[in-house]
Write a protein that binds this DNA or RNA. Structure first.
Lengths: 337, 337
DNA sequence: TTGAAAGCGCTAACAA
DNA sequence: TTGTTAGCGCTTTCAA
């Protein structure tokens, strides 16, 4: 049933390896040969079997994508772009879902290896960070996307989280706030930690201190709880501004502030997020946020990974891309102090 | 560098085929042999090469997932569940992104075939419907997820869109509305059409007629434009309720109604969506919507596909799963008429 | 139950 | 430029 190169060869009256050459970019074939073979292939509906090709070349042209959850819109957006970019360069993405349980992580490694992926993108903060290291030990090129855990042998592409946190602090101070809190991203992850550190630094540089800080763990529910805790106090005892570690949590925090506690944004409380995920621009949230330049992050991820795979460029790269503060309605305009 | 079955065989002092048997479920090996081989494999860090296995068995245990865009949260959610379910059964998902352009679609088919996917899930409404047919012609099992285009040879899993549309109509009438409009899903797709037809039927059965209908094409921008068109009129000349073809569009419509036109939901206008995507439950939207039972839809998709692949069950299945109306704050409580 | 041998569909020397 | 040949790492007969 499946048409093989041998079938095509027979019909075209040439050798099987000639057929192979016609379908191998960069091989030397005469135009006549190519035409003859392509015609026969067309007639038979032949396409090369990538499994067989991969078995020989040792290259599968498949990139593993490891993610944990897709509820934060930033990630589907990233996956879509990543997948398109790789597809454009002749690769495809195989999805591996993992949570944090050791047993599951082991299984995933088995899967990854047995599928002979050429490389791996880790696009989830909440995955055991030594998984990346173990894959790297086994010789699989790994790029961490939006995280920079682990040792320096691992490549990583992130936005400038430290600088970003600092910029958010400056903005909130410039808006005239004096009781500024932080519901952080997961402090077990580099992104969460860097944003929190940058934020604290920024406040200090402006002569302020954090009013309060709670670990939101990049989890919607945890962020909600944190918001209730922070904003249930009377006006003088609660923050007048809060920086939330990513947009996904910020939406939950805004909902609590407005609909559960009846406070107004930005008049009672200003809110800033991180990511500029698509929903941040929706009028119902209109969230001021640090934009992570997704397009460029994806580009860098793909370049880093494919350079490693195709050029054997072994030096790990740590790419950091500057973000931009996007001012929207969840913070007051400046000079209002 | 890569460890092969032959390496393991040598170390264990057995034949290479014995090693193969140990890693082939259901093959006959003595416990002693198994132990010896597993020990050697462990020591060498061996895992079977799935490419080589697939080349022989003709089964890749890879399922292609064809999607167009991931901006509607319903789909990432579906992908996550689908991928987990398949992973649990020893399969993996390879992502193929396609828009609607003929050239691109052809390229995608080439890719799918050359990667020897065992089956294909089409999870996007906006893809040329004959693509599914062409894959089916080539012998690849195809299941359409959340769409039921094309001829009957294709399996499809959907929710009961006709009944769902009807139920929405009944609900809006019961709430006392009399000028009921519809911003439909894409009318070129079965889901959009069925929901619209069911909705119109439901209104008729209640002695009403559609106040207006615009094709929103499952597109956020188109839905926004439609909302402006419908609701810019003075109170007596505009709808007092609108059924939007999916949640993703409904959010845009709600934003226009509230923030652009300054109307109130549900007092001036009631809004109903379709999907019950995660965001519908967020307080900022609190959207009444027909829930598509995602978990069961995914189960059925996986079962249908794997039965076809593993049992050779060739009869196409058309599964329709009943939805549930989830009442939230975007429609008034009953008896308010 | 085990090993020897053939071959899945292809690429990549090597010769011609 | 083309054909011949030898495998890639594995599964699967077939004999032993």
């Amino acid at each position: 049933m499946p048409v093989t190169a041998t079938d095509v060869a027979r019909r075209a009256g040439v050798s099987q390896s000639a057929v192979s050459r016609v379908f191998t970019p960069g091989a030397s074939v005469s135009p006549r040969m190519a035409a003859k073979v392509r015609k026969a292939a067309e007639e038979l509906g032949y396409r090369p079997n990538r499994l067989a090709r991969s078995l020989i070349t040792g290259k599968s042209r498949v990139i593993g994508l490891l993610v944990a959850y897709l509820d934060n819109q930033f990630y589907p957006d990233a996956i879509e772009r990543l997948s398109r970019a790789l597809q454009a360069r002749g690769y495809h993405v195989m999805v591996f879902l993992a949570s944090n349980e050791a047993a599951e992580v082991d299984g995933v490694i088995e899967d990854l290896l047995s599928h002979q992926v050429d490389g791996l993108v880790m696009a989830s903060v909440s995955i055991s960070s030594d998984l990346a290291g173990r894959c790297a030990d086994l010789g699989i090129p790994v790029v961490q996307f939006n995280r920079a855990q682990g040792d320096d042998r691992l490549s990583a592409v992130t936005s400038a989280n430290l600088a970003g946190g600092r910029e958010v602090a400056r903005h909130l101070v410039a808006c005239g706030h004096t009781r500024i809190a932080h519901i952080s991203g997961w402090l077990g992850a580099s992104t969460g930690q860097d944003r929190a550190r940058g934020f604290a630094q920024g406040l200090e540089e402006a002569g302020q201190r954090l009013f309060a800080q709670i670990d939101g763990r990049y989890d919607r529910q945890a962020a909600q709880d944190a918001a209730v805790e922070l904003f249930s106090a009377p006006a003088h005892a609660r923050p007048d501004a809060v920086f939330v570690g990513n947009d996904h949590m910020a939406f939950a925090v805004m909902d609590v502030i407005r609909f559960e506690l009846g406070l107004s944004i930005p008049d009672d409380v200003a809110v800033v997020g991180y990511d500029d995920s698509p929903i941040a621009a929706w009028p119902a949230y209109d969230l001021t946020t640090m934009r992570q330049p997704l397009g460029r992050m994806v580009e860098q991820t793909v370049d880093t990974l494919l350079d490693r795979i195709e050029q054997g460029d072994l030096a790990p790269r740590r790419v950091e891309i500057g973000g931009t503060l996007i001012r929207r309605g969840s913070t007051r305009p400046l000079q209002e102090d």
